[in-house]
């Protein structure tokens, strides 16, 4: 396939198959597919699973009332640091499915089991490394999947965004990491190559990790390990919208979040001078220094963009500077997402 491979948390992953920029536009304007089998599926089954997740996760699973509905959440340490970000699907009162990041999967599962031992010892927690995952994303993604998978249209045409349906051994979710419509499909690893080949026959092009990163950055989606980790709480990582502090329920990390109001926040940056914003570059603002957490060239905007952790008083519209190779370049604080649904938003 002509893919450039890279080691990603022990997985050999394709960075790009051809031009990374072409792959990016392919997804924004048409459809592309990603092998994201490194993501790990964890099923929690048994009575009381909702009560346990209400305590385990920073977002509130009580928002999930319709079977198949999904919720994005962080899972926190007692001190509020982010163990991982994840998607949890409510399938029934006896079964919730969670999808976690590859690099954190083993520690996530260890943490879940450790907490369950204390609070829900009868729960069955099992991960499924035998499940592959293919993300098909772009404005034409759903139509291509329907074409490739007979019977899937009837089942998923009315599926609302951020919901999932089972189809035999497959699990089809209308979710993604690109800011475009599409599906993430979990399928037994043995059947995945055939499914991939069928999609390829229908004209769906493979997309590498490189474009996956620029697509998610344009869409304003965090990447664990870059935009947040165990030393950062979700309120300082642009994820306050995923933390439910209003309901009376307790959850792990809640006390720490309430006791420590955020001093920093995540902001979007647009570079005005020529250059490319990258992670770890220093940001100079009128309110103190910050640091870029994710930066790249935006193929949609044809400008460089970044997410940066900055002092909390920095506002959209502020002029800031970014230090690149000992020079201070001009940038502007902008509202993000930067691009979604085929269009630049800046």
């Amino acid at each position: 396939m002509g893919a450039k491979m890279v080691d990603f948390g022990g997985w050999d992953m394709p960075v790009n198959y051809g031009s990374q920029i072409d792959e990016h536009h392919q997804v924004r304007n048409d459809v592309g597919m990603f092998d994201v089998s490194h993501m790990r599926v964890v099923d929690m089954k048994g009575a009381g699973v909702r009560d346990f997740l209400r305590y385990l996760l920073a977002n509130n699973v009580d928002k999930l009332t319709m079977p198949g509905k999904a919720l994005y959440s962080t899972m926190l340490l007692e001190n509020g640091g982010v163990i991982d970000d994840l998607i949890v699907y409510f399938m029934s009162e006896e079964w919730f499915r969670i999808v976690v990041n590859a690099g954190t999967a083993n520690k996530d599962i260890a943490w879940m089991k450790q907490q369950a031992a204390k609070h829900a010892p009868k729960l069955d927690i099992a991960d499924h490394p035998e499940l592959a995952m293919v993300a098909v994303q772009g404005p034409n993604a759903r139509a291509k999947v329907w074409d490739a998978l007979p019977g899937s249209r009837e089942l998923t045409e009315k599926l609302a965004p951020f919901s999932a349906a089972e189809m035999g051994v497959m699990f089809i979710a209308r979710t993604g990491y690109t800011g475009e419509d599409g599906f993430e499909i979990m399928i037994p690893a043995k059947a995945a190559p055939m499914f991939w080949a069928t999609l390829a026959e229908k004209g769906v092009k493979p997309i590498g990790l490189g474009a996956r990163d620029t697509l998610r950055l344009e869409a304003g989606m965090n990447l664990y390990g870059q935009d947040m980790d165990e030393t950062i709480n979700p309120l300082e990582a642009g994820l306050a919208w995923t933390v439910d502090l209003k309901s009376p329920r307790d959850f792990i990390g809640k006390a720490a979040l309430l006791a420590n109001p955020p001093e920093r926040k995540l902001a979007g940056l647009l570079l005005l001078d020529r250059g490319v914003l990258r992670g770890h570059q220093k940001v100079v603002t009128a309110h103190g220094e910050g640091e870029i957490t994710s930066g790249s060239f935006s193929p949609t905007l044809e400008k460089s963009i970044a997410l940066a952790r900055v002092p909390k008083n920095v506002q959209v519209g502020d002029a800031v500077q970014v230090e690149i190779r000992d020079k201070l370049l001009n940038a502007k604080v902008v509202k993000y997402p930067f691009a979604r649904n085929g269009k630049g938003l800046i």
């Binding site: 790009n16 020529r274 490319v276």
Partner: peptide, 8 residues
């Protein structure tokens, strides 16, 4: 390196 976007 792949798709070039900046030269100084």
């Amino acid at each position: 390196l792949g798709d070039m976007v900046f030269v100084e």
